[in-house]
Design a protein around this nucleic acid. Structure first.
Lengths: 137, 137
DNA sequence: GTTGATGCAAATCCTTTGCAGGGCA
DNA sequence: TGCCCTGCAAAGGATTTGCATCAAC
């Protein structure tokens, strides 16, 4: 079986399909969406396998868990640059952008002095995109 | 019964106790913690009342819901200035700080142009505080 | 052959809802 | 009085876990 990145995880077909889907999903899929898509290729797949695979991937740093909204998680392949999300409350569109928030904070926030902020610092803002603002009028 | 801020909500003893606790909790209590504390004063209180009161308070803008961690919500009295949280992964300490992230983004992120970012934009970072870094060595 | 991964079902956690009774305006 | 609020119990969605089986190393 093709190895999964450079991890020590046992490579199974389930895992490679799941990882594939997360990769193709451009980062904004939740567990259930991943499950639905994976099932088209592996009809006997179970949801718990999806959760367990995602947990392992997260543990080894292959993917990251995001909290775009309040009720469940979304997953994306780990990037190495710091990026964040802006979600339109109108149409649900997700805009990804880069900004070194961590640096900005270290620089401007005295209370953060000495804190070792980890890479997974995440910023999710919501707002209304130009299109939806027009529609709303 | 003492009115609850300047809202039109019906004032009940449950609600005033709950609001009191949220206020005293300095913003980092979840529903169950609020429930436990409120029960000391109102032994017959039910958890659903807590959830319903929090929902109402949120709706009227009296409090805000935060997503400091992955599994449940935290509540705090609405502030009028934009502030964010830095959570220590070692001891769980929460440091609040002020920073006009929204402005910074509008200014530096081209993709955000035209977006109307709403006030509730929130940033939660995690990291390790100086004390915990020492202990970890 | 071992060890870790899977599928299934049941369990758990957090939150919401239905309903009948009760309290504030 | 009328309407909103409450408590209780049951329902709901997301995620986790126990267990026997199975596949990767």
């Amino acid at each position: 079986m093709t190895p999964l990145g450079r991890t020590e995880l046992k490579a199974t077909s389930q895992r490679s399909v799941i990882l594939d889907i997360v990769r193709a999903g451009k980062g904004h899929l939740d567990a259930d969406e991943i499950y639905q898509r994976a099932r088209e290729r592996l009809p006997r797949l179970s949801l718990s396998t999806v959760y367990r695979a995602l947990a392992k991937f997260k543990e080894t740093g292959l993917i990251e868990e995001r909290h775009l909204d309040e009720n469940h998680h979304h997953y994306e392949i780990s990037h190495h640059d710091e990026h964040h999300h802006l979600i339109c409350t109108g149409c649900g569109k997700v805009v990804e952008f880069k900004l070194p928030i961590t640096e900005i904070i270290i620089e401007k926030v005295p209370q953060a002095a000495g804190f070792k902020i980890n890479h997974s610092g995440e910023l999710s803002l919501s707002g209304m995109c130009p299109d939806c603002q027009k529609k709303a009028t």
